[in-house]
Structure formats: structure tokens, C-alpha cells
Amino acid sequence: MALTLSLPRLREPSVLPGFWPALGFTVAYLSLIVLIPLAALIARPWEHGLADFWRTVTDSRVLAALRLSFGAAFIASLVNLVMGLITAWALVRYDFPGRRLLDAMVDVPFALPTAVAGIALATLYAPNGWIGALLAPLGVKVAYTPLGVLVALIAVGLPFIVRSVQPVLQDLDAEIEEAALTLGAGRWRRIRTVVLPAVAPALVTGFSLAFARAVGEYGSVIFIAGNMPLRSEIAPLLIVIKLSQFDYAGAAAVGLAMLVLSFAALLVINIGQALLLRRGR
């Protein structure tokens, strides 16, 4: 047999036509809407030098905003992890009047224009609003505080967790739970050994979606946050402020900082999910 030297092939032979046009279109499209803007964001901050970039990013106002945006997003997603799981559980496991209506309501934060949600929340939680008035005597202020930011982020994040977990719960084999029951496992033990392992990957997916959304959330937050620098000002708002002051490099610097932090967070979450998925599956 003759020795043949073959170059590694770019693609496996396929009977499906149109590989090159499809790939070409995909690359061009992704470049246009993702890669080029991303490249611009990475290229822009350096026009006044590294020192200037560093000064912008470590400015106490910027640091406070980043801490609030990421911290509140993280806590809100954690809250939604628990609440979303319970909501999905109730919607899947029980049949009650109004279940479908409740199910549809989960999507409202999705469907509502974010500004509308923000104004509604701000009105409700203001010291003279329906809920704010009840909380005020207890000394709890929600609107125009970091707590208000948290409330808004919880509201926008809920659908992500519920919609990620719901189909998995639906497909959960009831017989596995019944097996655990006849083997003598108590309620908590059954949830821990049967339900949680099954929904864990979906929970992580929902968490990362909710987190990503919450970090970038703007419309619904700015109305309820009060936007006090160093206290209740979120990073996306800071970008808008810098842009309105024609500080393009500064705005891009904050944007780049958010990008790096988001990537780092998603990387950690994805590694966690990969570990979860590897376990016995």
C-alpha cells in the first residue's frame, strides 16, 4: 500500500449540501453583531493609556457600582434559585384552580417593558406606596436603596430559573421517588436524593441566565434604585452617565471591567455545571 500524506480535513464528508455558505454566513453574522462590537469594547478604553484605564476602573464610584451590580445580581439569583425552584415545583407537582394563570404570570417580568416594571416597582415600594407603607413602620426602606436594586433584579430573574427547571421536574420519573418512599426515605431525604440531583444542572443553567440578565439589567433598576453614587448606583447606569459626559474611553473601561467579571463568573458557573453533569450521568 502506498503511503499517503493527508492534511487534516477541515470537515467530515457529509451528504448535506451548503457547508461553506452556511459557515460563511454564520461567521459574518456573528462578527457583525458580536465580535466586532466586542473588539471595539476591548480596543476603546486604552486611548488615554493604561494608567488612565486603571484609574477609571479603580475609582471608588466605579468600584462601588460594580460591587453593587455583581453583588446584587448574585444575591438576587440565589434568592431566585430557591424561590424559582419552589414555584416550578408548585406549578408542576400540583393541580389547582388558577394554575395555568399563575404559570402564565411567571413570564410577565419577561414580557413587560423593563421601564414599566421599574416604575411599577418604584411606586409599590416607595415609602408611600402600597408595600412601602407597610414596611416603613418596621424601618425597612426598599425604594431608593440597594435593597430596591435587589428587588428589581429578583423580579427580572425569576422566569429564567422557573422555565429552566420546569421541564426537568415535569420529566422526573415519579417511580424513582416512590422507590425512595418504599425504601423508607423521609420527605427531605427524597428531595435530596431524587429531586435535587435531577434538577441541579437545570438550576445552574437558570442561575447563570438569571445572573447574566441581572448584571446587565438597566431599565427596571434605575427607577427604584434612587441612583445615589457610591450607594445605589449600578454599573450600567455609570456607563450611560459617562457617555452623556462624552467620556467614551471611561464608559468603555467600565464596560470592559463588566465583561471580564461576567466572563469569569460564567466560567466558574460552567465548570460547576460540568462537574455536576459528570456525576453518574
Binding site: 417511580e175 424513582i176 422507590a179 456525576r279 453518574g280
Partner: peptide
């Protein structure tokens, strides 16, 4: 059970 219902993890 018919579906075995083993704990997969």
C-alpha cells in the same frame, strides 16, 4: 418497578 427506578447519580 418496571422502569427499575434506580437512583442514577
Amino acid at each position: 418497578f418496571q422502569s427499575y427506578a434506580l437512583f442514577r447519580h
